[in-house]
Design a protein around this nucleic acid. Structure first.
Lengths: 204, 204
DNA sequence: GTCTATAGATCGATAGAC
DNA sequence: GTCTATCGATCTATAGAC
C-alpha cells in the first residue's frame, strides 16, 4: 500500500509501525547525520522498542537506505516551465527553485546529509543526482534548446550554470550559514542570471 | 614557531608531537568525518598514545577545531587575475580554479567535511566562507567592476554565478560521484560561462 | 612528558519472555 | 509482534606508573 508521504504524516496519529519507525529515523538522521544517530534514539523518536526497529529493518544501514530511497522517491523534483515568454519562464523557475529549497528545512537537512555522507554512501549521492538533478537538467536543457533566439551554443552547459547558481546560493547562504559572512539577496542572483542569459539586449 | 605546512609534512619524519598528532587527525577526520573518527585511531595514525593526544588538546572537539582552523589558515585561497584581456583572464581563472579543486583530494575531503558538519559546527562553515569564498568573491567582483565594457549591472552577482558554477561542477562531478550519472566536461562549463559573460558578440 | 590500563557510558544487535 | 534485558564491542576521557 504505502500511499502516505512521509513528510505529510503526523507522528502522533500514525499507526503503521513501519511508517512510525521511518518517521523517527527521518527526524534523527536528517538532524544528526548517519554515524551520530543511534538506533536507541530512532526507537525512542518512533515510540517503539529497539527490537521492533530491528524486526522491520535488517540493520542500521538497511534502515538508512530504506529511509533515504523513500525520501528521494517521494520528493522527486520536477519543474514547470511555461512556454512564453522565456524571460518570464526562466525567472519564475529560478525564483521558485530557490524559494522552495531555502524554505524546506527537511530538504536542506537531506542535502547536507547526502553531501556529508557521499564518501561513505556513494550510491546515495548518485540516487540523489538521479532523482533531483538529472530530471531538472534535462528539462531545462531541452527548454533552452528549443529557444534558438537565446543564441545558446551549449544549452546543457547553460542549464547547469543556471541550476548551479541556485545550488551555490543555497549552499553558501543556508547550509554554510553565510547570511552574515557573505550575504546576498536571492533577487540579485536571479537578475544576474537573467541578464547573462538574455544578453544585453534587454538592459541599458 | 610552526613554520611547516601540515600538507607538506612527511608523517615518517615529523618529530614535533603536536604536528604528528594533527597529521594523524587530518588523515582520519578528512577520510571518515567527525563522529566516525575515534581518538584511538587518531592516536594510532599519529604514532602516539591516546593520553598524549589529550595532553596536547583538551578533547575531541578541541582537536577538531585546532586542525580545521590550521587547515583553513594554511590554505587560504587567493586568485590571480591578469589584467588583459578579460576574456583570457576569466577563462584562465575558471580553468585554474576547477582544476585545482578537482585534483586536490584533501580539499575535496575538507569541503565534504565542512558541508556535512555545518549543522554541528556552524562556526567551521563560516570560517570556511571567510577563508575560501569571501576573498575570491571580492577579488573577482572588483575585477569585473573595473571592466565597464563587460556591461555588468551587478558585478558581485556575476562573480557569484561564476564561482557558483565552478562549485556546482565540483560538487556534482566529484563529491556526489556524478561522472557516470550526469557527466559533463569542465570545458563546457567554462565555455558556457565565457559565452554568457562576454555576450554574444564573440560567438557566431 | 609519555606510556599502559581502565573507568564509565553508549553503541549495534540479539535472546528470550509474553 | 512487541517488549525488556543484556551481550560484547567501542567510545571519550582519565588515573597512575615510569
Amino acid at each position: 500500500m504505502r500511499r502516505a508521504k512521509l513528510n505529510e504524516l503526523d507522528p502522533a496519529t500514525t499507526v503503521d509501525k513501519e511508517d512510525k519507525i521511518l518517521l523517527g529515523a527521518m527526524q534523527e538522521f536528517l538532524a544528526h547525520g548517519y554515524v551520530a544517530t543511534s538506533m536507541d534514539r530512532v526507537a525512542a523518536a518512533a515510540g517503539v522498542s529497539k527490537a521492533t526497529v530491528y524486526s522491520y529493518f535488517k540493520d542500521k544501514e538497511g534502515l538508512f537506505n530504506a529511509l533515504m530511497s523513500r525520501l528521494a522517491q517521494e520528493r522527486i523534483m520536477d519543474i514547470e516551465l511555461q512556454l512564453e515568454p522565456p524571460e518570464l519562464a526562466l525567472r519564475q523557475l529560478a525564483e521558485t527553485l530557490i524559494k522552495k529549497m531555502e524554505s524546506d528545512h527537511q530538504f536542506l537537512g537531506f542535502l547536507r546529509l547526502v553531501i556529508g555522507e557521499s564518501g561513505r554512501f556513494p550510491e546515495l549521492a548518485q540516487m540523489f543526482l538521479r532523482n533531483f538533478a538529472q530530471i531538472v537538467i534535462e528539462r531545462l536543457t531541452s527548454y533552452l534548446a528549443s529557444r534558438p533566439e537565446l543564441n545558446l551554443p551549449d544549452p546543457e552547459a547553460t542549464a547547469r550554470i543556471f541550476l548551479g547558481s541556485a545550488l551555490y546560493f543555497i549552499v553558501t547562504q543556508e547550509l554554510l550559514h553565510g547570511k552574515e559572512i557573505i550575504p546576498i539577496h536571492r533577487d540579485r542572483i536571479v537578475d544576474g542570471l537573467m541578464h547573462l542569459i538574455l544578453g544585453s539586449k534587454n538592459h541599458g
